[in-house]
Every structure is written in C-alpha cells, then in structure tokens.
C-alpha cells in the first residue's frame, strides 16, 4: 500500500469495530450502543509513527486498547506481524504482549505508589521472562539510564519524582521487554511545557535507536505534527482522513481536519486570527448523526451528506479522505 515503505507493515487494522452496550431498566437490558470505534482500517509500517488525533470521545483511546486486546473488539481484524491479535490463543497473546507496550498519559496514577521504581520497571520481566533477580536488576538499571534517570533511582518510590521523571519511569517500563510497537496515549499532555520537549526528544531518540513503531495519541496538534510520519484523524469513531503528516498540515482536505488545523493556537502574536472555524460540540456517539457524522457541524455540507455515509477512499497516493466533497470528482 502507498505510504508504507520498509516492506510489510508491522500492524494492519481492518474494519475494526468496538461498541459498548448501554444498559437501562431493572433488567439491565441493552437499549443502545456507544459506537466508540466504528469500522477503522489502516496500516502502520515498521519504524514509523502514526499520530492519532481527534476531540475527546472520538474513540482514539478505545481504538488503541482494542488493538492491544486490552478490551475485546466487537468485530474486525488486527494483524501484527502476520498474527491475528484478536484471535490468537493465550500463549501467543502472551508473546504478543511483550512486543506491544503502552505509555499512559498520567504519570501520577499509572505507577503503583507502594512499589519501588526498580520493581515497577522489572515487573514485566518477572512476568514474561525467566531472568534471575540480579539480571533483572542489571536490566532495570541499564534502562533507567537509557531514559535519562540514574541506576540508583531503582530504590526510590514514585512520589520522590517529578511528573517528567515519572513519565521516564513509565517509558522505561514500556521498553524493558524490547517491544516493537508502543502506544503512547497522550504521553506529554499532563507535563509542563518545559518538560514536554524533553520527553518528546527522548521518545524520538528511543525510536531511532531501537527501531520502535509508535501509535501516538494526542490532542495537541503541534505535538502530533512534530512526532508523526502519518496522521489519522478520528471523528465519532471513524477515520475521516489519513495521510502523511506534512501533507495533512499543509493541505488538509476533510472539513473537520481543516477546522482542527485552523484551531491550533500559534505562539506568535503577529499571526492572530479568528480560529473558531467550527461551531457546536461533538454529538453523542450513542446516536451519531446519519450520513456523514460530521455534517451537523460542517459548513460545506451537501444534501447527500445527511443521507449517505462517505467511505474512506484514496484521493491521491497515500491520502485517504471520507468526504463527499472529494468523491466522484
């Protein structure tokens, strides 16, 4: 497929769906579904970073969790190096888990406060490998140094560290099993501005030295632009646009992507502009609007937008858009 160099993709996601049941009444009958992820298809090449953007509630975190099989999918396929992530038996899944890791947003709640840093980072090793205590300790110290902490920090507790340092601990834990894919779920949004760039540089350096592949979830678009090779834009459970990062930011096609890009605050007082290109809020994913889910907020909606849902189709090499404006042209 276009836009995926380096041979076969590491990850292939096909028509992935995740509905959460909405229960009501004394019998807790299923009355509806939250369509968190509704037919998502993309591929991710080895060593690349896919940025996943969208407003809160668009399903980006759910998508990541379903891909990692942390929650079951409703339907669809996830292929990781030829293995069906959603179907493999428990022993293969164990191996897959070593290869797919995750870094969370909040470095304050994702580290067990009662465990020493050394044990936190070593935990995956004790679960997945037969390493001895000393081997584990050596590996932990090595990794703490890789992420910019000191080996002796292994004997300290998480509360002794600042937010940025805790995020480094989370990164060390994610790296300890030599994974191939790391899902970074808003890894810098809880950090101070002066610390964000340290962590972004660290993630970038680690990607180069270990050949890592990232799925990078963030709502800060300037961060996404900085880290991503390709960017996928989600709206109410659907991908609306997917292409190379530079293309997306220089020539966004989908009206939603255009609004997102226009809404980015630019740190330059000379570039002041009217940013509020988009009116209203994101509709509920329980009863998403018919047709194109974005048509209720779209300034360029055509008559068919409220009736037929536009498929995600390729409009140029490696650039997919789901919008009637670009179809049949």
């Amino acid at each position: 497929m276009a836009g995926t160099p380096n041979g076969t993709p590491l990850l292939q996601v096909t028509d992935l769906v995740k509905y959460f049941p909405v229960k009501a009444g004394a019998l807790q009958r299923v009355v509806n579904h939250v369509r968190a992820v509704d037919g998502v298809t993309f591929t991710l090449a080895r060593g690349q970073t896919l940025g996943l953007v969208g407003e809160s509630g668009c399903g980006k975190t759910t998508l990541a969790r379903v891909i990692l099989r942390l929650i079951p999918a409703t339907s669809g396929q996830v292929t990781f190096e030829g293995r069906e992530v959603l179907k493999v038996p428990a022993d293969v899944l164990r191996q897959l888990r070593r290869e797919m890791q995750v870094i969370f947003q909040d470095p304050f709640s994702s580290l067990n406060p009662r465990m020493k840093v050394g044990s936190i980072v070593a935990e995956p090793l004790s679960i997945h490998t037969a390493m001895s205590r000393t081997e584990r300790l050596r590996r932990v110290e090595e990794l703490l140094e890789v992420v910019g902490l000191a080996g002796r920090d292994a004997t300290r507790y998480p509360h002794e560290f600042s937010g940025g340092q805790r995020q480094r601990i989370g990164i060390a834990r994610a790296l300890v099993l030599n994974p191939k894919l790391i899902v970074c779920d808003e890894p810098v949004s809880a950090l101070d501005v002066s610390i964000q760039s340290q962590i972004l540089n660290l993630l970038n350096r680690l990607q180069k030295s270990y050949g890592l592949t990232y799925i990078f979830i963030a709502h800060g678009l300037h961060v996404i632009k900085h880290v991503s090779d390709r960017v996928a834009v989600m709206y109410l459970g659907k991908l609306v646009e997917e292409t190379e990062a530079d293309v997306l930011f220089e020539g966004p096609l989908h009206p939603y992507t255009r609004a997102l890009v226009a809404a980015i605050p630019v740190p330059d007082p000379a570039a002041r502009k009217i940013r509020a290109a988009l009116q209203g809020d994101v509709p509920s994913p329980i009863n998403p609007p018919p047709g194109c889910r974005f048509h209720t907020r779209c300034t360029e909606a055509l008559p068919q937008c409220s009736q037929t849902e536009p498929p995600l189709v390729q409009v140029s090499a490696g650039h997919r858009v789901a919008c009637h404006l670009y179809h049949g042209a």
Partner: peptide, 15 residues
C-alpha cells in the same frame, strides 16, 4: 521548546 507547525522534525530545544 514548543514544537511549531512550521518547523521541521528533529530534536526540540529543551530547558
């Protein structure tokens, strides 16, 4: 240290 849209990828300046 803030990533800018008009900036090429590469290491960011840090404090």
């Amino acid at each position: 240290s803030i990533p800018r849209l008009d900036q090429p990828r590469g290491p960011l300046a840090v404090i």
